[in-house]
């Protein structure tokens, strides 16, 4: 419990530094959105425009409706939250070695497994808090517009989807900092994977339909916002996400127990 408290306080600053700017960003976007919310002229033009989007293979939701607009800007929920979780995952494990506090921590009468478990609790809770606060900020800033009945359900689905993606990168960050000999590398590799999967995901979106087999390796394509709007969770991707999450969490324990700490 002591470690949990200690870790939570140590990570509070970064939690706030991520949550508040993201909330502000989405609030500002909603002010811009109010300029064309419900504008029939744009809605009509969008309808004409849809042919072009279909031809280009992208499915663009009606951006005069809050739901449509949120799914257009949703990448700015998915991506930053995934980065947050990846960084906290690799940081929370490797920071003892970086700050030269590993010697102190592991000479305390606490098992390594318990230390890791406490750190995991904090990392998961922090990821959850960022998720809830950002989605709640989106919910409350757009609820003043003309929202449909499924609005809450849509954001709830998105929150679940984003949380699953966050867990994948959290686990990845943790297992890398437990396995790699050089603690410094875990962060860069996590970010490298995150960035390449993100860029791959954009590429998949651009050349629509022809690269679908690559969706399996890009977590950003597991729970896309247009599917969340329909409440359409793919069972396959949920299973993949759970397997990766459980696998990485479990192997973090396994590898860290045997780790030769850098002191």
């Amino acid at each position: 419990m002591n470690i949990i408290k200690r870790e939570f306080m140590a990570n509070l600053k970064s939690l706030l530094l991520w949550t508040i700017p993201l909330m502000v960003l989405h609030a500002v976007a909603s002010i811009e959105f109010s300029a064309f919310a419900g504008d029939p002229a744009i809605a009509e033009a969008m309808e004409n425009f849809e042919i072009l989007f279909q031809a280009l293979g992208t499915n663009v939701a009606d951006m005069t409706k809050p739901e449509g607009f949120i799914s257009i800007v949703s990448i700015y929920i998915y991506l930053p939250l995934a980065i947050f979780s990846g960084l906290i995952g690799s940081g929370i494990i490797s920071k003892e070695e970086k700050d030269k506090t590993a010697e102190y921590l592991f000479s305390l009468p606490v098992k390594r497994n318990k230390v890791i478990a406490s750190k995991m609790v904090v990392a998961v809770v922090n990821s959850f808090l960022v998720n809830v606060f950002v989605i709640a900020a989106v919910y409350f800033t757009y609820v003043r517009f003309d929202v449909s009945e499924g609005y809450f359900q849509f954001l709830f689905n998105m929150s679940v989807g984003v949380f699953l993606i966050q867990m994948i990168f959290l686990g990845l960050g943790m297992v890398l900092s437990a396995v790699l000999k050089q603690y410094k590398k875990s962060g860069s590799i996590t970010v490298g994977i995150l960035m390449s999967t993100f860029m791959l995901s954009i590429l998949i979106g651009m050349v629509d339909g022809k690269l679908d087999f690559l969706k399996v390796i890009t977590p950003f394509q597991y729970f896309p916002s247009d599917k969340m709007l329909l409440g359409d969770f793919s069972v396959l991707y949920i299973i993949i996400a759970l397997i990766i999450t459980i696998g990485t969490f479990a192997s973090t324990f396994y590898f860290y127990k045997k780790r030769d700490l850098y002191i």
Binding site: L87, G91, K95, K98, G187, S188, V191
Partner: peptide, 8 residues
């Protein structure tokens, strides 16, 4: 404290 978080 952590270069990577800053540069990201």
């Amino acid at each position: 404290s952590s270069v990577l978080s800053f540069s990201m």
